[in-house]
Design a protein around this nucleic acid. Structure first.
Lengths: 204, 204, 204, 204
DNA sequence: AATGAATGAGATTTCATTCAT
DNA sequence: CATGAATGAAATCTCATTCAT
């Protein structure tokens, strides 16, 4: 193999990218260091110059995702939510999330399907990620409940749980499965369901 | 080790039970055949008399779950759904599911957290399970929509997806996490959210 | 499996016959106790009532062969060799051997192809067999040399060695290989070669 | 264990050499991968870097022998055989073979005593080897028969068979058994027997 | 910094043998 | 006597990690 010398950060990213692709394709368990270095076209020893092991590169993948997600959360938190429940604004909000996952398919696949089942440390990292998002949601709901635009009997924690669940399958069983997921249809259904449940319309 | 002779089915079940406990405790990846035979108090060779390998006993665990779940689905399908949306009946329905998962904690843990990420064959088995349940849900919704008791703009497939997602996190992030999950609270919140979404009550 | 009770000797022979067939078909190494009991249609435990193990049944097979061969040797030794080299008598002698091997194909296959290579004890048994035959040959040759009908420069031990070798390949590479070996052709060639070598005839 | 890095071919040869020694000493069946790596002073994993398993290294041993033998055959074929049967030349020819086997005792032991009994694939390899040699012999005999220096009634295929047999026992029961085999005596006896058989001399 | 041959702990798997029924 | 489920020692094999080059 040609001996290419790259600066540390580029090489690290090259390995990380390769790992994301391979993990997405074969899953954590079935992925061997060999798969990663073959994908990255790098020698065995080189891998260990950048990551202490398989577990650690997986954690680095999660961390990478965490950063991307944090940026998204920060951006969404910056957007001021309207005092009232505006269907269009909610849909836009949901779509922003869905687009993020659709854009980072491989990464999302890795995280959503594996991060919770492989290793306690992976799970821990995942839970911190999940908590961050849920805290954000709970806080928003509380504010809207105080304004009276949101049903009082709704327990924000339950709602956050439900939202997380809908995210989960929307991602795992729809976005990651279909070749061309109809994000708009999904967001539309989502918002309607979230606003009015399954009961026939008695909207104003 | 004491040599006990059991009939084939009992011994198989003993191994399966042991496997469920160990998989739930340590996860598929971290579980070795050694762990399983220690838990089952059985000799190494005995394991291979009943299962060709680790992968296969895991598949057998999934199949076992599939059977339990199929019985539940059959039972629920036998129950006639009311023509109208009755809150109490819906809640009872949801509770039946939740109790099932709470009862089979170990098994559920194994299935929900691992089955999709270990092996393509596991995933396949899991998807068939998931489809069975979703077809059931979609069919019920269609019937209620025809009766006009269910919002017409609701896409049954989207709804089934959402329900599956709520199940998923309700199970993974609530039932499996807490020591004494409050199933009643969860069912209550679930039904309310499902019926009316987050919008303040405008019920009759 | 039906529980059939047979007298000890019959059951032993049943197992021995099965073993000969399986050893001939698959070789000692590739043959498992399982193969033998399947072929004999006998339970696992039953095998161990008659033979202490795999090695021992193989030794019993060799011993069985030894007995058959001993009978043949005894018979041949009884036949008085002519004082002169009679082509016809020699050929008949060789044919008797060849027919024996052709008749006991399976057994011969086992013995000739495996007995020397599996285990020191097998080898030992084989060597004793081989020595018996060679001693017989050497003694006959010496007698004929004394009568002056056999070349004096011929070392009887070398000759016995050569005869054994010719037997070996005649058996392994001709009799055991062809479906319908032409024993007569073989005996004819053998005797001619033994008598006159490759040199053109200068016979009286 | 000291970590020595060798080029691929050297390491492979080191393993092959170790395997030959161990196979010769303990036989195929009794040899474990462990024995081979201990003999080669190499780690367990290193073995699997070069050979997929025990069967394969054995096949490689046979192939190695095949190559050595092929060289010898090529060399012998290059030597022009005399038009007449020259005792001295024939003896030299036989001695060349015998010396080859005496030189490669270990390898010969492995091949001659095991190759035909372990595995169908081994046997196949062995038969190809055997055929190569026999074709060479048959062709030479035919030529000599055409020149009239060789008995016409001799069937070359029978002769090649006999030669192979004599080789076999000469090797297995003489060369491999004695510590200091008298190759010259053996060659002498061989050539005499081959030329004139057992009949008293009627040479010119 | 990069390489890839070498390592070995630990996993899986086999199968001759035992023994409760 | 006969059975065959159970045993476990000993084999094979994998792969994350190390380290001489």
């Amino acid at each position: 193999m040609a001996r290419t010398i790259l600066d540390k950060e580029t090489r690290r990213q090259q390995l990380l990218d390769a790992a994301i692709r391979v993990f997405a394709r074969r899953g954590y368990l079935e992925t061997s260091i060999d798969d990663i270095i073959t994908e990255a076209d790098v020698a065995r020893g080189t891998f260990y110059l950048y990551f202490p092991g398989k577990k650690e590169i997986f954690l680095a993948v999660i961390d990478h995702y965490f950063e991307l997600l944090s940026e998204l959360v920060k951006e969404l938190m910056a957007r001021e939510w309207p005092a009232k429940l505006e269907r269009a604004r909610l849909k836009e909000h949901v779509l922003t999330w869905l687009r993020f996952f659709a854009e980072h398919r491989d990464l999302t696949k890795v995280i959503y399907r594996e991060a919770t089942s492989i290793d306690p440390e992976f799970e821990d990292r995942w839970n911190r990620l999940s908590e961050t998002v849920k805290r954000f949601l709970v806080e928003r709901v509380r504010r809207l409940q105080r304004n009276g635009v949101l049903r009082e009997t709704l327990d924000p924690r339950a709602w956050a749980l439900f939202m997380e669940g809908i995210f989960h399958t929307a991602i795992c069983n729809y976005i990651l499965q279909s070749d061309r997921p109809d994000l708009d249809w999904l967001a539309e259904q989502w918002v309607d369901f979230m606003l009015w449940g399954i009961t026939p319309e008695r909207r104003p």
